[in-house]
Design a protein around this nucleic acid. Structure first.
Lengths: 193, 193
DNA sequence: CCTGCACTATACCGATCGGTATCTCAGGAG
DNA sequence: CTCCTGAGATACCGATCGGTATAGTGCAGG
């Protein structure tokens, strides 16, 4: 078992602990322990705990963006398939996320200061996702792309929240059906007055 | 200006600070200060900080339940109006909640332990809300009440999350339109195959 | 007056927080 | 062999955490 370099081990440990326990609940010592290194080493790679939090969220955001990119190459010229692919990605992630929750939603709850770099990163990422979704909706010929993108965003977020608090059964399938219905409704709205 | 009794002042201070800063970010000393009393008085009324958190969430949950009750008396025998009233209530709360977020969603992010009393309270409350919503959907004659209630729950939660992270404009109106569309779709699904 | 009670004020407890200084020790250069 | 360098481990820093002990204060009822 070849160890990864210290920086990667620290980021892996941060990913695991932050997403499982929350940001404020996890101390840097715990991260260092799990990464099988020391606090000193951690502070050589990250100036402060906040910087580590920010870097962790940056990686998570990049992973989501990568899914968008991957869907674009998997379904070129088929924006509707890309949108449904994003919904499918969230659906597939629900069981794993179950009761742990979305890292962005959870983290923003612990970052009430809107000027905090990590929070700005989350907000910029979410805004980018919505913009990209609206672009896909426009390309899919929907009559009101902004509205459709907003509605789809609502249900994607809501499905994750409801899975976390355990209030909804079969959240995945319901999410898929609802996204499909939203797309249908915005496709037909111009044709059936 | 007649002061409220200490216990009420403490709960008011907890409401303000917990919902604004988060649970772990607020110390009992800060709550006591804002309530214009002392830590000692606080621990006379609440055995521990967790107990105060739980009591706060119990009150917030009761407020939500009271809205359901109030809508029932305002629109007796009109379940659809009650459902739309609930959506309107969330919509009207969005500007105030703006960037602060829903107390339940935020708190559950800081309570990863599912056996924690406060978390159990939140989960029980959310499950009750969904059950009540499904009951209204059934009374409104929708073909699949559980599905409709789940979908409405998704969008109510999602609208709050998206408002908090600032990614969606006009979230309120979009929420209302989407809930309306969901109700229409589940009303017509049996009549138009 | 006095007694009792609820509340306040303050000091303190051990633990832990984010962050840092110091100390140890391996290994290459001469 | 000595000397230097630099990374890793340890101890430590002040601050703050949740929670408590203790002494004082205002006010009711007898």
């Amino acid at each position: 078992m070849a160890k990864l370099p210290p920086r990667e081990r620290i980021l892996d440990a941060a990913e695991e602990l932050f997403s499982r326990e929350g940001i404020k609940a996890v101390g840097v010592q715990a991260i260092a322990n799990r990464a099988e290194t020391t606090k000193m080493a951690l502070y050589r790679h990250f100036t402060t705990k906040d910087a580590l939090v920010e870097e962790w969220l940056r990686i998570v955001a990049a992973d989501y963006t990568a899914v968008f990119d991957q869907l674009e190459t998997a379904h070129p010229g088929d924006p509707r398939a890309q949108i449904l692919g994003m919904a499918r990605f969230v659906t597939d992630g629900l069981p794993e996320i179950s009761h742990r929750g979305c890292p962005f939603i959870n983290s923003i709850a612990e970052l009430p200061d809107r000027t905090h770099p990590a929070r700005r990163l989350i907000e910029a990422h979410k805004a980018g996702q919505v913009r990209r979704l609206a672009d896909l909706c426009a390309r899919a010929g929907l009559s009101d792309p902004d509205e459709a993108a907003a509605e789809i965003t609502f249900v994607l977020e809501g499905a994750q929240v409801s899975t976390q608090n355990g209030s909804i059964e079969h959240a995945g399938e319901r999410l898929m059906r609802l996204v499909d219905a939203i797309l249908d409704r915005h496709s037909a709205s111009k044709a059936a007055p």
